[in-house]
Design a protein around this nucleic acid. Structure first.
Lengths: 387, 387
DNA sequence: ATTTAATGTGGCATCGTTACCACAGTGCGG
DNA sequence: CCGCACTGTGGTAACGATGCCACATTAAAT
């Protein structure tokens, strides 16, 4: 399959083709693309008409058994591959779905995309991926691309209202993933942020923490707002004081979070617990604690929302809310499939993914607590049923 | 933008639309897609002909200035978006590029895809992503999809020979990424695996290690073969014995690597250094060391090939070979752009990405060494120039 | 004044596929 | 024996965009 001979691979930075192809001056257009066999060629090869060949391939309408076989064999023989563009043009509907996400480099979005692609592919769709890097312009540009290729649906982790609205205005079914634009009625799959945040906060309270800082980058979306609400609800329910200074705003980058945490710890040495609202913020928080030489969880505990790989690699592992991102992606894809099939016509569906809590070593009783530390390390374990 | 009001978001698991749309029984096809304006509609709206409208939009051929303005305004007004399928059909060339990769959930591939998408998007292409999960069947299926949509090029991290060959046989320009199928002459972007492995092995030898185990999952591809060769070359150059029992084969999953490492350490307690050939293997190796209670790097050192996020989060951080994956992806995309533009016609290009070494805390002198440990922790630092 | 060039415009065929329709056989019941 | 349902086939017209070509108008050159 591959080469075992490194010398061959290694011999040159640039290999030149040795075939007889004339050297064409650079700048000239590439050689005319080889003409691909059309259904006309196929019909000829199978000694029938294009209409019949089409019916034989698609299974719509009458075709004699032997003719069908002839057509299929001929298709195989001449390497016929139908032109999706022509088909889409004619049928006015495609098997393409647009996926518009914020940042493939973030494992959350990568996993989401993987889940979406997996299910859509097995349902016979292909996926056009546009990354928007969190920028509205790129998002709108992506939406325009989706309209241009006539995708039959789009899955979007929205950054702004415009893109989703554009798509919906044009009649493209949209599934919003992870968060939804307020006021736009589309299908969606959300995580139960309130419940996840509340449950993990309760876990902390149960350990004896009373001064829990929440590190958060936005509260404009249901994600941030829900996590804040869950945090507050847990405090309220436990009758704990709600100290506004413990809700620490930050930008979304790890570096920003790191600085925010460092500043917080200097300002409020009484904090015994950090709750990072996203995996990026958790990254910064973790680094701040590490560089500050804080022992976790003896001096200070840490929890996160959104489980990503590094959290189970570090020690102590980070206690976190598992969003079941893969499932989130697959569910989005399923809604798309249902919507296209028409089985969800007449109403929109918003599904909630029930997150679970993964308790690792980063949480323990607050320092000075009389309760002996019962650390479940090693080996992450889940305390809630799968969603 | 988003909702601050969790109660609204929260009120129901499934919201039903309140508009007057009649409830259609499920199973029936969705309502007819709203007819999108065509270039005919645009021409009418701009009081001109389709030909002129086309010229006005594309900039090919003569159009009076005022007419151009009228057309552009009309396009904006009626929301005209050209149909890519019709255009592709007519032009026999598209702005779509297929990307066929192994595993979006692996940060290596996710980053690669992100780099590819980024550059292609800025060059005006859109990307069709197919994940093959390392399976040949899925890969071939993906290639078939690319042929069907008439992509103008494809970027592939090959799993088998078939898919790449299929594409090339059909005249689709292919850029092979990370590894290349032996005997197929296409553009490609590879990492200088030999050099990377050699340099990091030399680093270990410089620290005093002599019994360095290489954990590796395959040597059939240039990736594995190159890393093995680099490892051997460094040993040879240093005059160290080449113990075949220290080249440890394993399957590619972290779990397999974990078991392989555990078994190795039991069998060969004299090993002072582990070199994991991929990020997945490093994950397993790291876990094995952690669970086995080995102190790193005092008892045993660890290095990896391919830097992924968790390696800089754990402590000690993992010394590793940085493949500049993002750059790898962007370079692939650039080759595609050049190939389509015809500027690389007449020869194929294979580019090598020069990796660099990131020294973190997981490497130190072997136990029993008289040289005092000079640990550069904390703070990763790069010892080589960027590629 | 007449040719020639430059600027502009619209008609038309085409890309490859499919659905609709007309039509041709066959078998069967009345 | 005729009509009718059923099976099966191929012709044809679209889907929407575009580039070629013919043609029209004006400006410039002889």
């Amino acid at each position: 399959m591959g080469s075992r001979n490194r010398d061959i691979q290694w011999s040159a930075m640039v290999r030149r083709r040795e075939d007889g192809a004339e050297h064409r001056p650079s700048g000239t257009p590439p050689p005319k693309p080889r003409r691909r066999p059309t259904i006309q060629d196929l019909a000829r090869a199978a000694a029938t008409s294009p209409s019949t060949a089409s019916r034989a391939l698609s299974g719509n309408g009458y075709v004699a058994a032997d003719v069908r076989v002839r057509v299929l064999e001929a298709a195989e023989r001449i390497g016929y591959v139908p032109d999706i563009n022509a088909r889409t043009l004619r049928n006015r509907t495609s098997r393409a779905v647009g996926v518009l996400i914020s940042d493939l480099r973030n494992p959350f979005y990568a996993t989401l995309a993987a889940g979406i692609e997996q299910r859509l592919r097995s349902a016979g769709y292909h996926v056009i991926v546009v990354n928007n890097d969190g920028e509205e312009e790129a998002e709108v540009e992506g939406a325009r691309t989706f309209l241009a290729v006539r995708v039959s649906a789009a899955i979007v982790t929205p950054v702004s209202e415009r893109a989703v609205r554009m798509l919906m205005d044009d009649g493209v079914p949209v599934v919003q993933a992870d968060r939804m634009v307020d006021g736009l009625t589309s299908d969606g799959v959300l995580v139960d942020n309130v419940q996840g945040a509340r449950r993990i906060t309760e876990h902390l309270i149960g350990l004896g923490h009373t001064r829990i800082a929440l590190l958060i980058d936005e509260t404009d979306w249901t994600t941030g707002a829900g996590r804040l609400d869950g945090y507050r609800a847990a405090l309220r329910a436990a009758g704990l004081p709600m100290d506004p200074a413990l809700v620490v705003p930050t930008r979304f980058q790890p570096e920003a979070a790191r600085e925010a945490v460092t500043a917080l710890l200097a300002r409020r040495p009484d904090v015994t617990e950090l709750f990072a609202a996203t995996n990026m913020l958790a990254e910064g928080a973790f680094q701040a604690l590490q560089r500050g030489g804080r022992r976790v969880p003896e001096e200070i505990s840490l929890v996160a929302f959104d489980d990503v790989p590094w959290m189970s690699m570090v020690s102590p592992g980070v206690t976190t809310v598992d969003q079941h991102t893969d499932d989130l992606g697959r569910t989005c894809a399923q809604l798309v499939v249902d919507r296209i099939a028409g089985s969800s016509a007449g109403h929109t569906t918003v599904k909630y993914i029930e997150p679970s809590i993964i308790i690792r070593g980063s949480t323990g009783p607050p320092r000075g607590s009389t309760v002996p530390a019962a650390r479940p390390e090693p080996g992450p374990l889940t305390t809630s049923p799968p969603s």
